[in-house]
Simulated scan of single mutants.
Amino acid sequence: MGFLVSLLVLSFLIFFHELGHFLAARWFGVKVEVFSIGFGHKIYKKVYGDTEYALSAIPLGGYVKMKGQDDANPSLLSHDQDSYNAKKPWQRLIILAAGPLANLFLAFLLYVAIALLGSQALAPIINEPDPSLSAAKAGMRSGDEIIRIDGQKVRTWGEMSELISKSQGEIEVEFLRGGQERSLMLLPTLRESKNIFGETILRPMIGVSALGEVRIVSYSLFESLPKALNETIRSSQMIVLGIQKLLSGVVPSSEVGGVISIVQITSKASESGIITLFALTALISVNLGILNLLPIPALDGGHILFNLYEMVTKKAPSLAVFTNLTIAGWVILAGLMGLGLYNDLSKIAQGVMP
């Protein structure tokens, strides 16, 4: 059952991505010849209007084939009024960006749903504070529940921790003790910590740790919208940072996962409940959106780069340059997919696949 859910999630994410391209293309009057979920042999197809809608045998992908655009054969150009090539570079740029943006929008919607439905979160209730730092010195003690930092309401340990880590001086900490509200001015101290990439960093701390109480936290629609937007932005930033760390060697190439990893993790998430599945789906959707914006010729980002070049120079790249770079892009993608598959199979062989 989990495997089926994984395929449905991946197909849905791909559908949403391609739907973004499709709607933008149709908005600008570009004929969409094929809208396919999956690659390879078409096991089902139906023509509506000018478009053939298809479900193909390999469900790990999808594509929108626009008139005048063919990555498999870049020389097949068309300059008819309803073709992709006949549109202005800025219009093509919007069509290309619409797919990744659709994935980011989907992640935003999923984060809104998570906030509305409620999810488990660590409560901002402190354990015995570190006696050497400001919280203990000011008189805070185990069981105190932090409710506001500098006037900003906090409902989870993560929200509290983030506000403290962003502080640049003295902060006002409001907390509950015995049902009564109290307030203290605390000066965070820079201490060494580890980030998610295992790097040693300095971050402001007041010397508190979580008591460990977990509760269900939900938000109103008004609260959910900015929270979902912040979560989408934060996830996007973390993925971009992860790519930078991978390229710089901080994150080893052995951490690159492939389709098998995605299916396995999604399957596990589906067994943990709808909120966990929504959260993972949102993260994969952000990942799909950001990765497609990378300046690799075979991806949306590469085509966006070509159009930006045309907008600046007032001329399109030569067919030879376009073809060679597109082929190089496919080689890079094939290499990354091969690396991900190799890592997945290695983990399975070592018995460490999640």
Rank of each mutant, 00 (worst) to 15 (best):
F39M: 03
G29K: 14
R191A: 01
K268V: 14
Q120M: 00
I332G: 02
E172Y: 05
G242P: 15
I37L: 03
M160W: 01
D70Y: 09
L283V: 12
S142M: 05
S56A: 14
I304W: 15
V321L: 07
V259R: 07
I196N: 05
G198F: 06
L333I: 10
N287V: 07
Q244W: 13
A136V: 01
R148Y: 12
G273R: 04
I216P: 09
E255H: 14
N287F: 04
I37D: 04
L211P: 00
N292K: 02
Q152H: 10
S183M: 07
I37C: 01
K42R: 15
A97C: 13
V286P: 09
L190P: 07
R182N: 12
K315H: 14
G38N: 11
L187H: 11
L319D: 05
N307E: 10
I243W: 13
I95K: 10
G249Y: 13
I126P: 00
A138D: 07
A328W: 14
N230M: 04
L333C: 00
L93R: 00
Q152I: 13
L93K: 02
L308Y: 05
G49E: 13
L225S: 08
P317A: 01
K314R: 11
E271A: 10
G257P: 13
A102E: 07
A25D: 13
D70E: 09
E271D: 10
E159P: 13
I43G: 01
S142C: 01
S78L: 09
V259H: 11
S6V: 03
I265V: 15
L299P: 08
V263L: 07
S167Q: 11
Y309R: 11
G20L: 01
V34D: 04
A72D: 07
Q81F: 05
S132I: 11
G178W: 15
S6R: 06
G169S: 08
A86T: 03
L116P: 09
L122W: 06
P297N: 06
N127T: 10
V32W: 12
W330Y: 11
V64A: 03
R155I: 00
